[in-house]
Write a protein that binds this DNA or RNA. Structure first.
Length: 671
RNA sequence: GCCUAUGUAGCUCAGAGGCAGAGCAUUCCCUUGGUAAGGGAAAGGUCAUGGGUUCAAAUCCCAUCAUAGGCUCCA
C-alpha cells in the first residue's frame, strides 16, 4: 500500500457524504440521512469524489429539474432561492394568522421547503388553505427581500420573543451551528437578517430579490399534511409542527411533481400488495409481522430458490439455526448490551433467559467453533435465510420495508487476513451479478467507517479497524463500483459497505450490506491453524444481498410497479375461453403449459371475456391467452400482453417455447 | 416512542344525533359474447375496541388499538 493512500477518515472527508441531493429522495431506511442531507451547507457539496460516476437512468415519469443538477448547483440555483424565500413567506403568513406562534427554522429542501413552528393550538387543514391563499397574496404584492448585517445584540432584540431564534443566535456567535441548525466549527462574526414585507428572519440567504420572481401558482403547502418534528431533530426536545411546501418555477412543473407523487403512490407496495394478493399485515397477528399469501409466497420462493442456487454455485454452504437463543450468546457477541433497545425483551424459561434472534451471526459463529479449523478450510461460507426479530418503534413500521420480523439472506465468511480483500471483492461481484439479473442496474456503495469523535462506541482498536476499512475501499476501487465513504456509519464491530439501489422512479433504497468484522472472532476466540502450524484468528465477513427478503420484495414491487418479469410473476399466464364450449380446450392449454413448468390458470368463470380481460389485466398477469373457435380448430392461443399489446395467434407449441425461454432466461421483456 | 390525521360490507368510499348506504367483488339465475365492466336477484355490518353524554350515538366526549404522513433510531 502506497504511503499516499488516504486514511479512511480522510476518504470520508474528501468525499461528500451526500454527493447528489437527488439521491437522498424517496422512502428509504434511514430518514436521518435525509435530514442530514437537507441541512448540509452548500459548501459540503463542493467536494465531490471523482469516482462517483452514476449515470442517469431513464425515468418514465419525466425529469425532475432539481434532480439532474448536482447538489452544489442546486444550492446556487434560482429555484433554491425561490424555495428559501417561500419558507419566509410561509412564516409571515403563519405569524399573521397565529401571532403567538414561535418560529424555528425554515430551509429549502429537495422539491420544496419547510418551516417549523411551535403553536399553542396547531392550525387546521382549513387554516392551512387560508395561509396558502395569503401567501399567494403576499407574493403578488411585489415585496423586496432585503438583507441586513446585525450584531448579536441587535439580533437578540429583534427576536426577543422568539426563543428558538435566540438559541440559534447564541449558538451562532459561539460557533456551534449555522442558521439552518447545521453543526459547523467556526463562530460566525456577523449575523444577517432578511426582511420581506412585514417579516424579518435570521438567515444567511440567499433569496430572490423580489417576490415577483416567484410564481404564485407554482407552489403548494397543502400537498402534504403537517408533521411533527423535534427541535434540532432531538427527541428529548420540544416537538414542533412542520409545514412542508413544494415549489417550482412554473405551474406545469408543480403539476408534474404532484403527478409524480401520484404515480409513486400507485406503485406503493402496500397498495399493490393488497391488489395483487401478495401479503397481509394483520393486527391480530401483530404489528410489523407479515403474512404471505400464496401469490406473494410464490414470488418470494422463486427469488429464494434462485438465490440459493447462486450461493451454492459460489461455494456457500447452507446452515440452519433456530429463531431464539440464550441471552448469554448475545452477551458474548456484544449485541445484547449494544442493541438492547432494539430487541424484543428476553423471556424467562426455567430460570434461563432467552431472546428472539435479532441476528444470525452468533449462531453461525458457533457452527464455525464446533470443530477445529485449518487454513485449508478457509474461506468458509455459511449461508442461511435466517428469520430475525427486532423491536422497531411502532411509528417506524411501514409495510414490508420496516417490519419486526424478517428474513435475511444472510451469510458469514470466515477468512484469513490474506483472503479478506479477494473474498470481499467476490461478494460485491456476486451482488452485482444478482442485481443485474434482476434488472436492477443502478446501484452504488456506501462505505461506513467509525465516527472518529466517538471511537469508544466501537469494539476493537485501530489495528483491527484500519486494515479492514482499507480492504473495503481497495475492493471498491478494484471493482469500480461508485462509492462514498461516510464516517460514523460503521457497525459497532467493523466497517461496512452498504449497497444502495436506485429504482425506476429514482428513489434510493438501501439493500444488502457487506461488513468486515475482526471483532466477533476475537470475542468468541475463533481460531484456525495456519500452514506454519500457528493458531491464528480468522476475520469474518457478514453479508446480505437482499438485506431483508420482506423489504426486498417490497422494493421489487415498487420498482416494477407490480408488473414483474415473467419468471417472478406469481401467475404467468391466464387462459380466457371466449365461450363456455371453449373451456375444455382452455383447460387442455393450461395443463400443457403447467407440464412445461409454467404457473398458469384457466379462467372458466361465467363472465364475458371482456370482463375477464379487464380483471386479469388489473392483476398484471404477463400473458393473457384468449382461446375461441379459431384457436381450438388450429391449436393456437391468441396472446394479449399485460401492456395491452395484441400479439395475435401463436401455435400452442410456439407460445410454450417462447414463454419457457423467457422464464428460463429470466428475461425482463415478456415477448 | 412522539406530533397530526384517519378507521363504516372482502375492496373503494358516501352518510355528520333519529330505520346502515352505493359501486365493485362473492353466490345463484339468465346470457355464449374475438380483446378494458352483458342483464337480473340474493347474500354480506359488533359503523376498529371499551367506556361516557343523550329519550336516542356510526355521528358528540374520553381511553385503547390499528393505519397513514412526518420526527427520531437501526446490527
Amino acid at each position: 500500500m502506497g504511503s499516499t493512500r488516504p486514511t479512511p477518515q480522510e476518504y470520508a472527508r474528501s468525499s461528500a457524504p451526500v454527493y447528489d441531493q437527488a439521491l437522498v429522495s424517496g422512502p428509504q431506511p434511514s430518514p436521518r440521512r435525509v435530514v442530514r442531507a437537507e441541512r448540509r451547507s452548500p459548501l459540503a457539496y463542493l467536494s465531490i469524489g471523482v469516482w462517483l460516476t452514476i449515470k442517469p437512468i431513464e425515468s418514465p415519469l419525466g425529469e425532475d429539474p432539481s434532480m439532474s443538477q448536482s447538489a452544489t448547483r442546486y444550492a446556487e440555483s434560482h429555484l433554491y432561492r425561490i424555495r428559501h424565500s417561500l419558507a419566509h413567506i410561509l412564516a409571515e403568513a403563519v405569524l399573521e394568522k397565529f401571532p403567538d406562534a414561535r418560529i424555528a427554522i425554515g430551509p429549502p429542501i429537495e422539491d420544496g421547503f419547510y418551516y417549523d413552528f411551535e403553536f399553542s393550538t396547531p392550525p387546521t387543514d382549513d387554516d392551512l388553505k387560508q395561509i396558502e391563499a395569503r401567501m399567494k397574496k403576499i407574493i403578488s404584492g411585489n415585496h423586496a427581500f432585503t438583507m441586513r448585517e446585525v450584531t448579536a445584540d441587535e439580533a437578540r432584540q429583534l427576536f426577543a420573543n422568539q426563543p428558538y431564534k435566540l438559541e440559534l443566535i447564541d449558538d451562532l456567535v459561539n460557533g456551534r451551528v449555522d442558521e439552518d441548525g447545521e453543526q459547523i466549527a467556526a463562530p460566525s462574526a456577523t449575523l444577517t437578517v432578511y426582511t420581506q414585507n412585514t417579516f424579518t428572519d435570521l438567515c444567511k440567504g440567499p433569496h430572490v430579490s423580489n417576490t415577483q420572481e416567484i410564481n404564485p401558482n407554482a407552489f403548494s403547502i397543502t400537498f402534504r399534511p403537517m408533521a411533527g418534528a423535534y427541535w434540532r431533530g432531538d427527541e428529548k426536545r420540544t416537538q414542533l409542527t412542520r409545514i412542508y411546501g413544494t415549489a417550482w418555477q412554473t405551474p406545469d412543473e408543480l403539476k408534474d411533481y404532484l403527478h409524480r407523487l401520484e404515480e409513486a403512490r400507485k406503485r406503493d407496495h402496500r397498495v399493490l400488495g393488497q391488489q395483487l394478493e401478495l401479503f397481509l399485515i394483520e393486527p391480530l397477528v401483530g404489528k410489523g409481522l407479515s403474512l404471505w399469501l400464496p401469490n406473494g409466497a410464490t414470488l418470494r420462493d422463486t427469488l429464494e430458490r434462485w438465490l440459493r442456487q447462486k450461493l451454492l454455485d459460489a461455494g456457500y454452504q447452507p446452515v440452519v439455526t433456530p429463531h431464539i437463543g440464550s441471552i448469554e450468546l448475545y452477551k458474548t457477541s456484544g449485541h445484547y448490551p449494544y442493541y438492547k433497545d432494539n430487541q424484543f425483551p428476553p423471556m424467562d424459561v426455567d430460570g434461563e433467559e432467552y431472546m428472539m434472534k435479532p441476528m444470525n451471526c452468533p449462531h453461525h459463529i458457533m457452527i464455525y467453533r464446533s470443530s477445529p479449523r485449518s487454513y485449508r478450510d478457509l474461506p468458509l461460507r455459511y449461508a442461511e435465510f435466517g428469520t430475525v426479530y427486532r423491536y422497531e418503534k411502532s411509528g417506524q413500521l411501514h409495510g414490508l420495508t420496516r417490519v419486526r420480523g424478517f428474513t435475511q439472506d444472510d451469510a458469514h465468511m470466515f477468512v484469513t487476513p490474506e483472503q479478506l480483500e479477494d473474498e470481499f471483492i467476490s461478494v460485491v461481484r456476486l451482488a452485482q451479478e444478482v442485481f443485474n439479473e434482476l434488472g436492477m442496474n443502478e446501484f452504488r456503495a456506501r462505505v461506513g467507517i467509525r465516527d472518529s469523535k466517538k471511537l469508544d462506541k466501537y469494539a476493537g482498536d485501530d489495528s483491527l479497524w484500519i486494515p479492514a476499512a482499507n480492504a473495503i475501499i481497495n475492493a471498491c476501487e478494484k471493482i469500480g463500483i461508485p462509492f462514498t465513504v461516510e464516517e460514523g456509519e460503521a457497525a459497532f464491530y467493523g466497517p461496512k459497505l452498504d449497497l444502495v439501489f436506485r429504482d425506476v422512479l429514482k428513489r434510493d433504497w438501501q439493500l444488502g450490506t457487506v461488513q468486515v468484522d475482526p471483532n466477533l472472532p476475537q470475542r468468541f476466540d475463533l481460531e484456525y491453524t495456519d500452514s506454519d502450524g500457528q493458531r491464528k484468528r480468522p476475520i469474518m465477513i457478514h453479508r446480505a444481498l437482499f438485506g431483508s427478503v420482506e423489504r426486498f420484495v417490497g422494493i421489487l414491487i415498487e420498482h416494477f410497479g407490480g408488473a414483474f418479469p415473467a419468471w417472478l410473476a406469481p401467475l404467468q399466464a391466464v387462459i380466457i375461453p371466449i365461450r363456455e364450449d371453449h373451456n375444455a380446450y382452455a383447460q387442455e392449454v393450461a395443463a400443457h403449459l403447467r407440464r412445461h413448468g409454467l404457473r398458469v390458470k384457466a379462467d372458466l368463470r361465467d363472465k364475458h371475456m371482456r370482463n375477464k380481460i379487464k380483471e386479469n389485466r388489473a392483476l398484471l398477469i404477463p400473458w393473457l391467452l384468449i382461446v375461441g373457435d379459431r384457436d381450438v380448430a388450429e391449436r393456437t392461443v391468441s396472446v394479449r400482453l399485460r401492456t395491452d399489446e395484441d400479439k395475435g395467434a401463436l401455435s400452442l407449441d410456439d407460445f410454450t417455447a417462447l414463454a419457457t425461454r423467457l422464464v428460463a432466461e429470466r428475461a425482463l421483456n415478456i415477448f
